[in-house]
Write a protein that binds this DNA or RNA. Structure first.
Length: 308
DNA sequence: AGCGGTCAAGTTGAT
DNA sequence: ATCAACTTGACCGCT
């Protein structure tokens, strides 16, 4: 069964996640800050509920949750705890209901912390901030029943081997709630599947195979070969990423994402009968792209069912 | 109401 | 030495 995933936002559905810039908040007294943050968090919990309902109804079995769903949660000056927000208990309950909804309907959710979260950095300060951020994401992941927190290898710092050795060491410092969800994904600049798979297999870190990144930054491995190795890193349903190039494979920069997925870019080996797989669709037309791909695949493979 | 410039965080590579 | 690109909008503050 193939479970397609939607990433973070909607193109047409009126489902919006809200946030604020730190700059606009820093001048306010703490009580006003907390008031504004509380209303954003409450709104975003409601938007997440709507997003999950949409996915359930449309046979989208996976939803990636944006890290900013709790805006500025770990900001050095503006950071907060949900419990200290006005109406915090109700906000927590609203997120917990999202988790219950996912369990009831077999939906999967994931987090993808952005480029500032680095376990390979030589800087202890960067590492500590990153671990703090991962702790936050794991806390929220527990609340909404998400099983994936997916990051990249980070920088090379002039020596990939050493950087990956640092990353490996730092796995020991992660809380079980983080470690149980942490995954590593190949990127399109530095870390290829060939770089990451040995670490993932040795350390039991699930490998999120982004086939688009791999096609943009090839490493001599075949798609089928990476797919097979990636599967072995997962003790549950593997999660992969897929995109199509904006200007075609012969265009100027194939890394740019297209609005939609060209079904020809969907690897044939991912359609093998009996293979359960989550495929997050990184396409700018968002739910429209997932819905179209779902139609395109319908007669070739068993899909996560839509709620009738 | 509409517009353009800006947005917490790190790293790389183009200029 | 500086700055855009990462994913890519959404938000802010000005008119």
């Amino acid at each position: 069964m193939i479970r397609l995933g939607l990433c973070c936002i909607f193109r047409e559905q009126p489902i919006k996640f809200r946030r604020k810039t730190a700059k606009s908040m820093l001048g306010l007294p703490r009580s006003e800050q907390l008031g504004v943050l509380a209303s954003l968090c409450r709104l975003n919990a409601g938007a997440l509920q709507q997003a999950l309902r949409y996915c359930q109804a449309h046979g989208i079995g996976d939803f990636r949750i944006n890290s900013q769903i709790l805006p500025l949660y770990t900001h050095p000056q503006l950071g907060y705890r949900l419990e200290e927000l006005p109406g915090g208990e109700e906000i927590i309950a609203a997120f917990a209901r999202c988790g219950t909804f996912c369990r009831d309907h077999g939906l999967r959710t994931s987090f993808h912390p952005d480029q500032f979260i680095l376990l390979s950095s030589p800087s202890e300060e960067v590492t500590q901030r990153s671990i703090a951020e991962l702790n936050y994401q794991a806390e929220l992941a527990e609340l909404v029943a998400a099983d994936v927190i997916n990051i990249h290898g980070g920088g090379a710092y002039g020596d990939k081997e050493q950087a990956l050795a640092r990353l490996t060491r730092r796995l020991q410092r992660l809380r079980p709630q983080v470690r149980a969800r942490l995954c590593l994904e190949n990127d399109d600049r530095i870390y290829t599947p060939r770089d990451l798979l040995p670490l993932c297999l040795a350390e039991g870190v699930p490998f999120v195979y982004d086939v688009h990144h791999h096609r943009c930054l090839p490493d001599g491995m075949e798609v089928a070969e990476v797919t097979e190795s990636a599967r072995r890193t997962w003790d549950r349903e593997p999660l992969f990423h897929l995109s199509s190039p904006r200007d075609g494979w012969n265009g100027k920069n194939p890394c740019f994402h297209h609005d939609f997925i060209d079904p020809a870019d969907f690897p044939a080996v991912w359609l093998e009968p009996g293979l359960d797989l989550s495929v997050e669709v990184e396409a700018k037309a968002k739910e429209l792209a997932v819905n179209r791909l779902r139609k395109d695949l319908a007669d070739r493979v068993v899909l996560f069912p839509d709620g009738e």
